[in-house]
């Protein structure tokens, strides 16, 4: 199994989702593999799989790229589409690990405004201030939505580790 072939769909998927731009996503994806290669010696297998590591690199690079290029971090319709995509539960997710499945389910159960705030911060890398401006809400409300959403997902993850099934 060859490395790029194995992980390219994941890396490109992350880059494309965050940037919303095919060419920029390819640049980001390519840089992800280059960075992984240059910094392979700091990969720590105890902190997660290679997949998780590459996903994290791709996400960081993609957010940096978007921040450097745009004044508006994301288009509202992109956010709605992405939110639908990450909360759907097609058959291909059946093999996902329990914690990821619980995070997906918990995200789907969040009030829409909390899920939007979380996606803006967690996926697009928007600050609470940017979330507040985009949603036209007070800064404190944006922070509360992010915090509350994260707390619920954390609880879901903890439940998965204990073997509970959050319903």
């Amino acid at each position: 199994m060859l490395f790029v072939r194995r992980f390219q769909h994941r890396v490109f998927g992350v880059a494309r989702a965050v940037t919303g731009d095919q060419q920029l996503a390819e640049d980001v994806a390519q840089q992800t593999f280059e960075r992984a290669w240059r910094h392979a010696q700091i990969y720590d297998s105890r902190r997660g799989s290679v997949m998780t590591w590459l996903t994290s690199i791709a996400h960081n690079l993609a957010v940096d790229a978007v921040r450097a290029r745009r004044t508006e971090p994301m288009a509202p319709e992109d956010l709605e589409d992405l939110l639908d995509a990450v909360t759907e539960t097609p058959e291909r997710w059946a093999l996902a690990d329990e914690a990821s499945a619980q995070v997906r389910a918990a995200l789907a159960r969040l009030p829409r405004e909390q899920a939007r705030a979380l996606m803006m911060a967690g996926i697009y890398g928007m600050t609470a201030r940017q979330v507040a401006d985009a949603e036209r809400i007070p800064l404190g409300t944006a922070k509360t939505r992010i915090r509350t959403a994260m707390a619920k997902l954390r609880t879901a993850t903890a439940s998965a580790k204990r073997g509970d099934h959050v319903r």
Binding site: R5, F12, V14, R16, E26, F33, V103
Partner: peptide, 26 residues
Amino acid sequence: VGDRLVGLLPDREPPPGFETRVARGL
């Protein structure tokens, strides 16, 4: 939790020739 959230993003087919371009870059 943040990592798992990012991990929910869907995979996507990269453009044709992507593998080769990565290899050449490396």
